[in-house]
Design a protein around this nucleic acid. Sequence first.
DNA 1: GTTCATCGTCGAACCGGTTCGAAGCATATG
DNA 2: CATATGCTTCGAACCGGTTCGACGATGAAC
Lengths: 338, 338
Amino acid sequence: MVNIGDVARAAGVSRSTASYALSGKRAISTEVRDRVDEAVKALGYIPNAGARALATSQTMVLGLLAQFLEDEFAPAMLQYILGVTDTARELGYDILLVTEADGAHALRRITDSRMVDGVVLLNVAEHDVRLPALREAPQPGALIGLPADCAGLDVFDLDFPEAGRMMVDHLHALGHRELVLISQPEHVVTRGGAYVWRLRDAALEQAQKRGIVLHAVFGESRQPAVGRDVNAVLDAHPSATGLLVHNEAVAAALPSILHERGLSVPTDLSVVGRYSDEFAKTFSLPFSSIESAPDRLGRMAVRQLVRRIGLPAGREEPYVVRFISPELVDRGSTAPPR
Amino acid sequence: MVNIGDVARAAGVSRSTASYALSGKRAISTEVRDRVDEAVKALGYIPNAGARALATSQTMVLGLLAQFLEDEFAPAMLQYILGVTDTARELGYDILLVTEADGAHALRRITDSRMVDGVVLLNVAEHDVRLPALREAPQPGALIGLPADCAGLDVFDLDFPEAGRMMVDHLHALGHRELVLISQPEHVVTRGGAYVWRLRDAALEQAQKRGIVLHAVFGESRQPAVGRDVNAVLDAHPSATGLLVHNEAVAAALPSILHERGLSVPTDLSVVGRYSDEFAKTFSLPFSSIESAPDRLGRMAVRQLVRRIGLPAGREEPYVVRFISPELVDRGSTAPPR
DNA sequence: GTTCATCGTCGAACCGGTTCGAAGCATATG
DNA sequence: CATATGCTTCGAACCGGTTCGACGATGAAC
């Protein structure tokens, strides 16, 4: 393989001069620079990443730690991953994707061996076991998902409480007085998915504030349990006129279920969901919903991470915790109750 | 950061001895080995990946080139990715995930800079532009998806022609004599997704051989076009008694569509799909289908790639093209026609 | 009591970049 | 004419591992 020595020889200069000509870190005569550029092209020279990493202690690679937990909706994850990889590439970074079950161990491995310049954590839990490892790591990290303790970390997430309030207010304003909220399965919550609680608590509080009834239940995430469960919920609350769905599997199954029950939307029942735009498009869900914009979160996290990596040693900017505001996309699935 | 020199000093030996003690490539007294192991633990030593890559010209990283093409079903991709990452990790490799639009360029970048020891290509097209770049690369590569020319590459794919024949034969055996096949959108094919053609051609041929009628059409992949299109297809072939669905978006939309038309499965219409098991579970599709087992393909590709990486220089084993046999999972959506 | 293997360890070189200090040279300055 | 200045370029050291050749010590063989 051709190395910088070959380039230097072909251009008739020393290795250091070739290096400076390419990096532009010192003044080089245009004549020499042209000769070096020519040699690079002629020989097809591409710097060796390992050698460069060793010399500069920069790998231009970011770690992306995704954990695929059972009973969480996997396809949604892909949107985050794409947001992260695309943005990273725009900024000159590649992505090391880690899906190991033992996230803390994997994190230590890639940070301590200096394979990456920084790390993005996906699907962060309330008390995420990866956080202690990340805080000890020599590289900075950014989180997608809000944990209990954000100290020393940049955190990005959807404003779930606000999403809960918006869903309630939207239906309240239309005149609804009894609603049902179907959340993710309860074991998603106990495992640390606090976003479920945050939306739910805020929705309950807002309902109380508005003086309306909100039945909050946990849904299933797999068929055939989903169908049975949703039917049971609807049977249990026959007078409810609005449905809030914070559960992709339930949302996906809902059109068929309502059809079977002879209910039409929004005449018989108003429905508001909470899932990504991409999800709605792919599965043709006709429900108004609060977008979660996973690609935007990925983009923000990488931007901030790269900014922090670029900070001169010693200088530490304040860490940010940033929530994106929920937006309700109207697909015509809500109306005043009958 | 602690390096091997620190370990050597703590153990009272030379750097080379410490290295040999850790790698086991030369005989070392148990006493020294224990002292070195102790020092490693006490100092928390983890070798620098860049330095090791430079010295050994092995990075223990595999490149994974995924391309997210418009109008192809993205969530399916995730299953491949997981099969690849999990298997790679089992074999000691990490994964560099590349999703750049210009795949050939990205491939050259990561191979020529020696960031990876090998490459897995996902979603390979009939005349994939990445293949010339891969053939010139110094590292081996494995493909998931069958291109026109497999020379010098290990290739893995589902046996799509056999899948097409199985779908036809299954319904033919039940007594059906007029079928409709809905494939992926036509522009997926023209862009190089030859698997669509391979299944379709084999199905048509098999239908002819059995002496039955098969109407082969291309479906849409996005709502609301999917719904309109499927309804039009059903209207156009009112006497067809069986439906073959090689299109995730159509499969996902089908339950609602059939419900609206007042058709029940399998009494009025028999349906056979072709999608992954995971897809069927997540979206509660009640259709018998041919599994594509994306995780198994990912696993096979990585296994073979790692085997080839381990081959001593100069020795070249014959390249393999391996198809996994389709399996029809019966979910009770087929029956003799009325 | 030499000679010869064998075993365990060390020093030095190497992988391929980057970067620091210094040196050569032409030109401007006193 | 001697010195200062700025612009280019070079040599050498360094990043942190691995690996080759050599060397001293120990025990066996003759």
